[in-house]
Design a binder for these strands. Structure first.
Ligand SMILES: Nc1ncnc2c1ncn2[C@@H]1O[C@H](COP(=O)(O)OP(=O)(O)OP(=O)(O)O)[C@@H](O)[C@H]1O
Length: 745
DNA sequence: TAGGATACAATTTTT
DNA sequence: TTGTATCCTA
């Protein structure tokens, strides 16, 4: 069996062997932090620490699985299954299932995903008579989530609310929490918060887990939020065997509440902590590292640190100017074809972008060039309608209080139950403080519902009754039962379109996913399956062994590595993204994101930008990203396409169309090499920040479509200002200033 | 009540 | 361009 200490540097070895007391490993990209955590776990096991005493937290489930596999390869301990290696969210879900009652839940609580959460927000808003046109539910929801990430409850939020918008958020927030509780459900943030609450409430419970988890390890510590910090601290406060690894320069989730101060103040939080720095990068060539290093040095809020590689310079980073996104995609495809021809397997190649929307043109180009690809994320499987429908039945089986799922499926597949009937069921439910399922069961007692409608409702309750028998069964059993009882497949059959076919396939995939889950986890059953499904992340469902190119966002690329990597859309206002560039902190996070992206590449890196990009049907001029000017120019090679500045497709490209064999993909697109970097800035780009100070409440304005109106109220900040305007002819509208193109009248 | 047609608005990153 | 929300007709 391989020795976990083999091939480690001195610093890494020290980190693996360190015992007794807090340990922080801070180090730059590719320096082997994850490897340290893995080897440390393995070494602990080899030293006789029982696996059940180990808690290792990773950022994704995928990383957790990988770590478990690697540890298994290093130890072959039979009891490795008892080790907890998981994300914070999965770990918390696991804890809460065991202690649900202590925080006001039952063991069968539902985990609401984004869409479910939004529907709770909407229903609270309609209950409280808040107009969804003036207060966008999505916005309200994200503000609630932000508050929760900062561990701010509804009361505290209300106290600090300073305008009508925030007071409204506070009202919804309160109702939202109440509704979740009634429905025996939690959102993602609650998973963490409820565990904090659990530990605060019950000293004995906390003590039990402190005793059990004698060793706590956390990877990617720079992206933990307030609640996660509290949980880690609580667990480690007795034995203080906590090992955190991270890189402040790779903190890219502050918008989700991650707080970089957690890692920066580790030494104060855990006095006497040992700090180990890793300074050798094992991943990238010299040029790639040099480019990344000079870029990140532009951040002002940052501690200087060293990172070197003993690898040679390697190939220069290619910085490439293309005319538009089609040419960009074509170029990427051509270069992938070339690399593939030179022997780089497709699975070692990735294309990264700032926003999911950019994957589209890439997909088209890959298809046209016959290059096999996988997209991470985008239209996630478990968010699809047909999948969500079936899962809703399953959720309702385990948790009858789940009104969101009830609302989703009461009339799906269509069984003639209309809005009126549902409204009446809802009214009855809230009048009697019972869940919707209960009012459906008592439908005969609701005199507003006519017998024919009531009969239809009873058909639904009969289905649920029969499904109940499967609640303790396996996942696959439950899926099959739902499909049979609801005739879901027949329902899909009615749709003969391409889309309907796809849906059928998706349902089939769900059946296999459930089946596979049962194989892997015999204990899990229906409940375990639902939990796993609720907590899958985008990268989790990505198979990195497949011989395909990977398309993914920069965020999901965190922690991964590829021999050849492309970053496309490296343009001002896209990357750095406009929405993040207003504040210095936002801009610096974008820069860290660029740093993360660049350092994913092992051997070859391309950065592409275009002069024109069509988004939402509008073609816009783009300026190259400022980040390009911040790279070390001596590590880069600059190229331009001959057609640049002409927003049109290259007509001369010849693709070998229907050809799936990657060996002879024939695509070419030759670019000119430049001696001088040509990254010029237009100071006044199309997206330069506008000055909205002239717009205030009371001001009379003119809109191209709605004509003349008066501003009633402004809300939001930065470039996100929204105005409520009373138009003479069109009445009241709520518009974003940046889109509305208002003029003073 | 269902489903299509139309209007309308809004675009980051995700557990 | 896309999705969603609302309206309208069968
Ligand atoms: N001592 C070593 N000798 C050789 N290769 C190493 C060594 N340590 C780590 N590596 C390799 O370097 C690469 C990066 O390691 P790892 O992913 O652990 O780094 P990391 O610090 O977690 O990176 P990042 O922060 O960028 O995600 C991996 O391919 C790993 O196998």
């Amino acid at each position: 069996m391989p020795d976990p200490l083999a091939n480690l540097t001195e610093a890494q070895t020290a980190a693996v062997l360190h015992r007794g007391g807090p340990l922080l490993v801070v180090a730059g990209a590719g320096s082997g932090k994850t490897r340290v955590v893995t080897c440390r776990v393995a070494k602990l096991v080899l030293d006789g620490v029982p696996p059940w005493a180990i808690l290792a937290i990773t950022f994704t489930n995928k990383a957790a699985n990988e770590m478990r596999e690697r540890v298994a390869a290093l130890t072959d301990a039979a009891t490795l299954g008892q080790m907890r290696v998981s994300t914070f969210h999965s770990f918390c879900a696991w804890l809460l299932r065991r202690h649900a009652e202590e925080v006001g839940l039952t063991r069968d609580f539902s985990i609401y995903d984004e869409a479910d959460q939004l529907s709770v927000v909407k229903s609270v808003m309609s209950e409280k008579g808040i107009d969804p046109a003036s207060f966008k539910p999505g916005m309200i929801h994200s503000m609630i989530s932000r508050a929760k990430n900062e561990m701010k409850g509804p009361e505290a939020y209300d106290e600090d609310a300073y305008d009508i918008y925030e007071r409204t958020v506070a009202r919804v927030y309160r109702g939202y929490q109440a509704l979740l509780k009634v429905q025996n459900a939690v959102d993602f943030d609650d998973l963490l918060l409820k565990v904090v609450e659990l530990f605060e409430k019950s000293g004995t419970t906390l003590e039990k887990y402190r005793k059990r988890f004698q060793h706590v390890l956390m990877d990617e510590y720079q992206d933990t939020n307030a609640a996660q910090y509290r949980i880690a601290r609580a667990l480690a406060s007795g034995h203080r065997n906590i090992c955190a690894t991270g890189d402040p320069d790779q903190s890219i989730y502050s918008w989700r509440g991650a707080d970089i101060r957690n890692i920066l103040s580790f030494e104060e939080d855990f006095p006497g902590a040992t700090v180990i720095k890793l300074e050798e990068n094992f991943r990238s060539t010299g040029h790639i590292l040099a480019a990344a290093d000079m870029l990140i040095k532009n951040n002002t809020m940052r501690k200087e640190r060293d990172l070197f590689t003993s690898k040679s310079g390697g190939e220069p980073v290619v910085v490439c100017a293309l005319s538009d996104e089609q040419e960009e995609a074509t170029y990427v495809a051509a270069e992938i074809a070339r690399a593939s021809g030179e022997g780089v397997p497709l699975r070692d190649i990735a294309v990264m972008y700032r926003v999911n929307a950019l994957s589209r043109s890439l997909e088209e180009a890959m298809r046209a060039a016959g290059i096999a690809y996988n997209i991470v994320g985008s239209v996630e499987f478990y968010r699809r309608k047909e999948i969500k429908d079936i899962l809703a039945y399953m959720k309702l089986m385990t948790n009858p209080l789940d009104d969101v799922s009830f609302g989703r499926i009461i009339n799906v597949p269509a069984r003639g139950i209309g809005l009126r009937t549902i409204e009446r069921l809802k009214a009855f439910a809230s009048l009697n403080s019972v869940p919707m399922v209960e009012s459906a069961l008592r439908v005969k007692k609701i005199k507003e519902i006519r017998p024919p409608a009531a009969a239809k409702v009873q058909r639904f309750t009969a289905i649920m009754q029969r499904l109940k028998k499967h609640v303790d069964g396996s996942a696959a059993d439950a899926v099959r039962a739902v499909l049979e009882e609801t005739n879901y497949l027949a329902f899909l059959d009615r749709d003969k379109s391409e889309e309907g076919l796809q849906r059928r396939e998706n349902v089939g995939a769900l059946v296999s996913a459930a089946f596979e889950f049962d194989q892997l986890d015999e204990e899990g059953g229906l409940r375990g399956f639902l939990e796993q499904v609720a907590l899958v992340s985008d990268v989790d469902s990505w198979d990195d062994a497949e011989e395909r190119v990977t398309l993914l966002t920069l965020h999901s690329a965190k922690g991964l590595e590829f021999r050849t990597a492309f970053i496309v859309g490296v343009e001002e206002s896209l990357f750095p993204h406009v929405r993040s560039s207003e504040t210095l902190a936002g801009l610096e996070e974008e820069r860290r994101l660029a740093y993360v992206g660049i350092t994913r590449a092992e051997e070859k890196l391309y950065l592409c930008y275009t002069h024109f990009r069509t988004q939402f049907g509008r073609t816009m001029r783009c300026a190259p990203s400022r980040f390009l000017a911040e790279l070390d120019p001596s590590a880069c090679e600059f190229r331009v396409s001959r057609t640049q500045r002409t927003p049109s497709r290259l007509a001369t490209l010849d693709f070998d169309d229907d050809d799936d064999d990657p060996d002879d993909i024939e695509v070419s697109l030759e670019l000119e090499d430049l001696d001088e970097p040509v990254i010029e800035y237009d100071e006044i780009g199309p997206d330069s920040p506008l000055d909205y100070s002239a717009f205030r409440a009371g001001v009379i304005v003119k809109h191209s479509r709605f004509g003349v109106g008066q501003i009633l109220e402004l809300s939001g900040s930065g470039s996100d200002i929204r105005a409520r305007i009373l138009f003479q002819r069109y009445g009241e509208k709520s518009l974003m200033l940046k889109y509305a193109n208002l003029r003073k009248a």
